[in-house]
Amino acid sequence: MATKVSERGGASAPAKRSPFLVELYRSALGKKYVMAITGIIFMGYVLAHMFGNLKLYQSAAEFNAYAEFLGTILYPIAPDGAVLNVLRVMLLGALILHVTAAFQLTQMNRNARPDSYRSKRDFVAADFAARTMRWTGVIVLLFIGYHLADFTFGWVNPAAEGATLYEKVIASFSNPAIAGFYLVANLALGLHLYHGVWSLFQSMGWNNRRFNHWRRYLAVAFTVVVVGGNLSFPIAVQVGLIS
């Protein structure tokens, strides 16, 4: 038995090894690290995204100027739009990793119980958010596609050609169906965040019995702030608070 353990290093180790991160990713625990780290990136993004959009409440001019500014971050040190596009590529890369790892882990988990329980499970600790991560994830993913087509590319935006971003937002959210879809998608995002923000501490191995109870508070607070802000925009347009 003892020899088997020592075989892992030393003589039997392959001469050429993959890079550390590639090797870590091969394990399910490594994939969970990827889920957590990309999740932290998205947390930073959704918080900044929500906060920036609060400018909708200031004025159309402020909001449009802010959108303009995002394209000119670090200009003229960096070329026009460079920083924004680098951020976009990073987010897209994180999204691909997050979804790929989730897909591979789901496959692994399906294989771990091909023969499911015949009787109804009586869950004690697994809450609704935790058990629906895959569904809320898919909803959010579809929403991201629509959201980009709506505002970034403007393919499905109802506003007239040459409209400012503020006008596009108003045009989109004035449609009750679109506003409703944004509400549903953000509630899904809320469930996803509620479990994800707590869960990432476990996956990252950030554990200290003195601080563990704060993980749930953080998840709740983060979810309420981000989703609360996001939900307010279509509601504000629908009730005529901003127009």
Partner: peptide, 28 residues
């Protein structure tokens, strides 16, 4: 076996009440 999604159902079922804190320790 499968992979962990931090639902905590194991901890609730454990006859010895073992904490999922150990899972975080293992991940680290």
């Amino acid at each position: 076996f499968g992979s962990c999604t931090n639902m905590g159902e194991c901890e609730a079922a454990c006859p010895k009440g073992i904490s999922i804190d150990f899972i975080a320790t293992m991940n680290k």
